[in-house]
Amino acid sequence: MARRHPEARVWATDIDLRHLDTQGLPNLVPVRHDAGSDPAPVADVDLIHCRSVMIFLDDPHAVLERLVGWLAPGGCIVVEELAGFPPYDPTTVLGGALDAVSAVLLRDAGADPQWVRDLMADPPEPLIRHGLVDCGAQMRVYPFHAGSPASEFSRLTLQQLRPRLLGQGHLTEDHLDAAVALLGGHDLDEPASAVLSVWGHRPR
């Protein structure tokens, strides 16, 4: 976003900035920030984009209300969430690993699937509830191509959840390592997880 729109100021916020690389872009401003409790880093925002954040919050509806309040009149908010994994074949190396990831996200990591189901209404009910207009939704499923963003996302997710997957008996170490290796360098037949995007505008 910062590269495509060098005239705009882009604020990249997160509670953990360790993995944020500004790539030397002068208009990209990193801010350590908790959207659930901290004040807005800047007033009257033209665009707010949240990806795979809200589903892990204790009260995503309350945070959405805060974010909508930070928008400038006519401003847009885009919320993207993991919309669930397709029904994987648990007998395959990758299918079994991703099935275990789904279980961890739903039961162990605090993810609330009801939040995503609420967003799937047409138009997205949570956005309408907060007074947004011109709302829409789109679902995308990406294939597992070697080196693709979908493969990298799943590979990094497996690595990040490794302690939970191994420690709670979801996977063996050999199974997990084999799945990570497959995602790192192979085109695979199984579909990647689906991503739901919803958007709405604050009335002018």
Rank of each mutant, 00 (worst) to 15 (best):
R162F: 04
G169H: 10
L166G: 06
I128E: 13
Y142G: 05
L161H: 03
P123M: 01
P143M: 05
L156D: 15
Q114H: 04
E152V: 03
L165A: 02
L165C: 08
H145Y: 12
P113G: 00
D177S: 15
D134M: 04
Q160N: 13
H130P: 11
R162Q: 14
H170S: 05
L176W: 05
P124C: 01
F153I: 10
R164V: 12
G147F: 07
M120S: 06
A150W: 04
T172S: 15
R155H: 15
A146K: 13
L119A: 05
H175F: 07
L156N: 15
P113K: 01
H175T: 11
P149K: 00
G167P: 07
A121G: 10
H175C: 09
L171S: 02
P126T: 00
G167I: 09
A150F: 04
G136N: 06
L171T: 01
L127R: 02
G131M: 04
F144H: 10
D177T: 15
G167V: 04
L171N: 02
D177K: 13
L119R: 07
R117M: 08
H175L: 09
L132P: 09
V141P: 01
P124H: 01
A146V: 08
T157W: 01
R164Q: 13
T172Q: 14
E152T: 10
A150P: 02
D118M: 08
H170Q: 06
G167A: 12
Q159T: 06
P123W: 01
D134W: 04
L176P: 04
E173M: 13
S151Q: 03
C135V: 08
R155S: 13
E125G: 06
V133S: 12
L171I: 04
D177H: 13
M139P: 01
P143S: 11
C135S: 08
A137C: 07
P113I: 00
T172P: 03
P123V: 01
P143H: 05
R129Q: 09
P163A: 09
L165H: 02
P124K: 01
D134E: 15
D174T: 12
P143R: 11
P163G: 05
G131N: 07
Q159E: 15
V141M: 10
S148H: 11
L161M: 08
S148P: 10
R140C: 01
A146G: 13
Q168T: 13
H145E: 13
D174W: 10
Q138V: 00
G169C: 15
P124S: 02
V133M: 08
E152H: 07
Q114W: 04
R155D: 10
L161A: 03
P126F: 00
P143K: 10
E152Y: 03
R164C: 08
L158T: 05
R164W: 13
Y142M: 14
P124Q: 01
P143A: 09
E152C: 05
G131I: 11
H130I: 13
E152R: 12
V133G: 07
G136D: 03
D134S: 09
M139S: 05
L171M: 09
D174R: 14
Q159Y: 03
H145R: 14
H170R: 07
H145D: 09
